[in-house]
Design a protein around this nucleic acid. Sequence first.
DNA 1: CATAGTAGTGCATGCGCATGCATAGTGAGC
DNA 2: GCTCACTATGCATGCGCATGCACTACTATG
Lengths: 353, 353
Amino acid sequence: MARKSSRSTSFDVAALAGVSQSAVSRAFTTGSRIADETRTKVLEAALKLNYVPNSIASSLTTKRTNIVALIIGNLDNPFYVHVLHTFSRRLQEQGRQVLIFTVEPNSESDEAIMHLLKYQVDGVVLTAAQLSTRMISLCHDRGIPIVLFNRYIPGSDASGVRCDNVAGGALIAEAFLAAGAKNFALITGDLKGTTSQDRVRGFVGRLLEGGVKRTRIVEVEGHSSYEGALNATAKLFRDQNRVRPDALFGVNDIMAMAAIDALRHRIGLRVPEDLMVGGFDDIPEGRRLPYQLTTVRQPIEQMVDETLQLLHLDDPTEPIPRGIDRPIKGRLIWRNTIPVPLSHRWTEPEIQS
Amino acid sequence: MARKSSRSTSFDVAALAGVSQSAVSRAFTTGSRIADETRTKVLEAALKLNYVPNSIASSLTTKRTNIVALIIGNLDNPFYVHVLHTFSRRLQEQGRQVLIFTVEPNSESDEAIMHLLKYQVDGVVLTAAQLSTRMISLCHDRGIPIVLFNRYIPGSDASGVRCDNVAGGALIAEAFLAAGAKNFALITGDLKGTTSQDRVRGFVGRLLEGGVKRTRIVEVEGHSSYEGALNATAKLFRDQNRVRPDALFGVNDIMAMAAIDALRHRIGLRVPEDLMVGGFDDIPEGRRLPYQLTTVRQPIEQMVDETLQLLHLDDPTEPIPRGIDRPIKGRLIWRNTIPVPLSHRWTEPEIQS
DNA sequence: CATAGTAGTGCATGCGCATGCATAGTGAGC
DNA sequence: GCTCACTATGCATGCGCATGCACTACTATG
């Protein structure tokens, strides 16, 4: 047999160290009652045998796997890559592992849930994907906390952390108004998702307060992609009879960037001279020289922290938080795609590389 | 106790179905000897109890977790995000799970290995990160196959799949020569990595064959990042006394894109009129309107397939492949940053969205 | 009708570790 | 010197499932 796995067990180590198997177990468990001397002896033996404790086996008794599942629906958007990265880093710092499930953008993740249930994960984070309430109760029944990231299911008892998208959308509307825009348009992804919905609502709502009655809304086919937004922008300017917008809100940064590209390279308009553009997310790509996108920053670090807190990973006896909705305020980052009105000049400048 | 995990076991199901626990186990194991009638009975009972088999427990006996670890060192580069995505999709299709470890770009991943050993993963894929030979033998000794993706460790017995970077670099050099360039420069990340090294080698080598004796090489500080390449490009054009290059090879697409941005927005040069630029990877971002980057496409799908084959996930009795190096040829994608010479006009055109 | 063969099932056991309980050992306090 | 309190350790057991083996009830064959 070629793949003879010479994995030594706690018994092997115990034998070499001249102690019992329980002693080996305790040596590897912090906060266990064991003499320093014994622990040293055990660790030395373990080192000799290349022994590594089998977490799988230990989780059988402890009922904790230290694995957190992350369901992610859109890796095409750098924002969610950043989210993934942040979760991964944080959880690794805590000595936990990340089991990842990728699903189609905005598609059902019920199947993924079934898989991760088999692995007895300690918690689930779901982002950029849908979930049936049946699955949520399935998790809850088994004591597995699940937190939605930047998404919520109205009326369900799933908890979630998200950016305050309504307020964020309003931020962009305000910036446009302050910069003196008159005709407004926005490009959004699938309006079935609460995230897009809220941003649109916040944007349109704030404009209404400002006396603007009409906003052109173009819904991209499929999910919020660069290509979709490219076509949507073209469509927006195809009809020559309509009033040309002078302010365009891309409901997330990639769509805003796509719009900018389309405006410059296809339509032949300048940004922000002919038309100002606002985004949402603050992905690093938006900071680059050709874009310098004015946008709403989602405080990822803080959102991830809140999410992990809701998971109660450290104290499984805590009741699973149900129906909690934690909206977190974003912040407007002034860059170059919306002219900064005089009244805003005092805003702290951002250091650019 | 709030988190009363009401997880039912195979015994509960057995009791309800009026069979033995082994029957339940067999009902969930494909290819097991069990009457259809019994299986149906079991599955019905399981459904009633919301029973989901505990993979953790089963892996204790089967010695297979169906978990594959993926160590990834650079999520800032969309190329590796794409790689991650492809692996995830493929493995999920096979009913396997992905345990992800993110490490700092090009840093040691020994610690990650220690963690994943605890989880008895069935295989390891490592990309954009370093690994000590000690760790490789540690994995091999325990029967865990490990495959390097786009990276190799000369003289070690770790196997790897990679793009043929030497040939790829040569492809760009050829394109430059065919387009009539005279003065060449390149921007690369850390030259300790074999990937950058090979691309540079291939590029410079081909130029030498073409009679070009000098190539300016700028090594970015740190890893291959957008920001690094931005500075490197600036540096490249700072010295007015030197001959200005008319062809610039960005050793990967983000660096090439950064170079283009810097040239246009900082230096004030046109691409490709004043200076042609070639990239490597073919990330989707490079196809966008402002860039239309001519680049070498890495065949990700094929590379992932080869990697999974080397892992022998389906047949653990296969000997672990050692010291195998599978270079896979990339393909030049003509777009707009290198003028297409007349002699190449016949190349199949790419459909652009 | 006798026998060999086969499909279906249950029993018992073990995977590697954690942990409650019992026990041995140590030192302090009277 | 004796008891008490406490620490360190070992023993035995169970976590949830897979699987070798034994056993039963059939079917096919001569």
